[in-house]
Design a protein around this nucleic acid. Sequence first.
DNA 1: ATGAAAGCGCTAACAG
DNA 2: CTGTTAGCGCTTTCAT
Lengths: 357, 357
Amino acid sequence: MTTNRRSGPHRPATIPDVAREAGVSRSTASRALADYGSVSPEARERVRAAAQKLGYRPNQLARSMITGRTHTLGAVVADIQNPFFAGVTRGITDAARAAGYQVLLANTDEDPAAERAAVKTLRDRHVDGLIVSPASTTDTAHLTAAHTGGCPVVLLDRRVPRLDLDSVTVDNHGAAQDAVRRLLAVGHRRIALVSLVGNDAADDPVDPGSTGLARMAGYRAALREAGIDDTGTYLRTGAFHGQDPALLARDLLDSPAPPTAVFATDSLVALGVLSAARELSLRVPEDLSVITFDDTDWARAVRPRISVVAQPVQELGAQAVRALIARVEGGTHPPEHTTLPTEFIERESVARARNRA
Amino acid sequence: MTTNRRSGPHRPATIPDVAREAGVSRSTASRALADYGSVSPEARERVRAAAQKLGYRPNQLARSMITGRTHTLGAVVADIQNPFFAGVTRGITDAARAAGYQVLLANTDEDPAAERAAVKTLRDRHVDGLIVSPASTTDTAHLTAAHTGGCPVVLLDRRVPRLDLDSVTVDNHGAAQDAVRRLLAVGHRRIALVSLVGNDAADDPVDPGSTGLARMAGYRAALREAGIDDTGTYLRTGAFHGQDPALLARDLLDSPAPPTAVFATDSLVALGVLSAARELSLRVPEDLSVITFDDTDWARAVRPRISVVAQPVQELGAQAVRALIARVEGGTHPPEHTTLPTEFIERESVARARNRA
DNA sequence: ATGAAAGCGCTAACAG
DNA sequence: CTGTTAGCGCTTTCAT
């Protein structure tokens, strides 16, 4: 049995077939079809007609082998099931398609080894470039190797200090600072930050990653601005309680001098805060004001509706694609670090501070 | 400038390089590397060593051109941002990777034209097979064409009546029937079904798709079983109110003889029901019992926690991958239709019926 | 068990 | 503007 020559009536037409049908040479047919070089209008028309008639579809594999381009991008993210990455991925696939690229998807679950493996497999598949939300701040040799090896890499959502690669991130510091300022503005002084530590529900109990760090820094900056020097008392980074946000929050809210407002660094944490509040019979926002990162479906459906810091998730993905394609298509400019603004969406979960027993 | 021959110190090693280094012919090197045919143990070892030394990585493109296999699967889903499809996609990518395949992702937004385009592009990319959650029950010619054209297709989540392709779906009828039975069992008689119509928040206001249809049929069957013949009064398929679930629910709950229990066909609808209930000062579950499809994060974090019909989302994707790979690797058995069971997770949103004013 | 040679479908130098 | 001629990197008969 021949391996790849389709038997049966409809063997896919190839360039020689089209050329024969059009009465020109393969090169001319190729030029006409791929639209490069110079071809006389009439020849071009004959080729187009022949291709049409034979139902010719170019073999991208063969083309890629020559051009060295597959028009395929690799997306290496932590977990597509995380709404944040789902949105980002949506932005990536849409922007890629619009630019004529397809996307190979890989999940890492924040595991650097899985990330390395994914990068390797995708490079073996000859992706033209890689979009990665790095799982580690230190284990990044495979990323630089890819980049210098001709497979450009764009960092998504997380910046890595000494890595000179393009990055597209969100202004986490500013967003957190702004949110906390709003709480301060309505009289809150005992403001907590609750986080699961790490990047969006990461497993790593040590490394808060660039996003977590930035959010904490923004929180502290806002407090300091307001003359609050002790910025650590109400900072909860959840390496305890087996990462259960509700327990973490309960512990915090049930303490002697509980906070009057909570800033949650992601929506899962916010859910924990909300249910802890309900268990302790604290009303939101009367007894406790709440702001969270990420505008999920439930934040605007629940009562009271929750005020949030919305991240431009799709735009994040789209910008990463644009930056990457710029590199793929030859850009040699110095690394660009794009920071996207967040949007504060005011709803009903924040009230003026008042005393609690 | 030569197009594809990498300049610089590290031109990727090819088979000839390895063969030379090992002192054998290309064919032998190829056989040893790809592990087929017969190669003497010593030669094999020399080749392995040479490959190792030169950091040889096989060019999958070239290999694919010959073997006709890319070890790449295409996943064509409605919307990766929908938690249902996010979970399914997670299952797909994981199962694929475990079997040595990668996944190209495409979104359709329930648009048949987008689906056709995606199928075309993916086939051009020579995917070995396609997993599709079809956007239309009728516009499916491109699917059969792909399948008979050597690119096997597995239907995901939705079955299409006259399409003889493998399918992996969930027992929507049984799940709905079971949920409604539970409501009947605790005394409810006025039980509503609220749906956005169509498959998981589809745009199409006409075609409820196989999943929507099955859920409604299960609902009606349960009612009929209980001797309730009028199964249409409390059936709301949301082609009104601009698809806003909260308005739909409000309308329903604010009627003269409102239902005492609601079965929501997806979590977004449930959120609408919940907020409508709160606006009307109806307590859950005392005044209104609620069950919804899909076990989202908020369903178990909110108070009261919501009883749900959980779908095996990841398993759905994984099974589809297995079925597809079976075809890709030559299976010629008749189409298989796999139906996965759902799981009812009892929490606190259902109470015994009592009279309402 | 091994090597020589053919070729997958396409593009890209280079002549004409 | 067009055709001829080489390959891309790999697998796979077919001899040996």
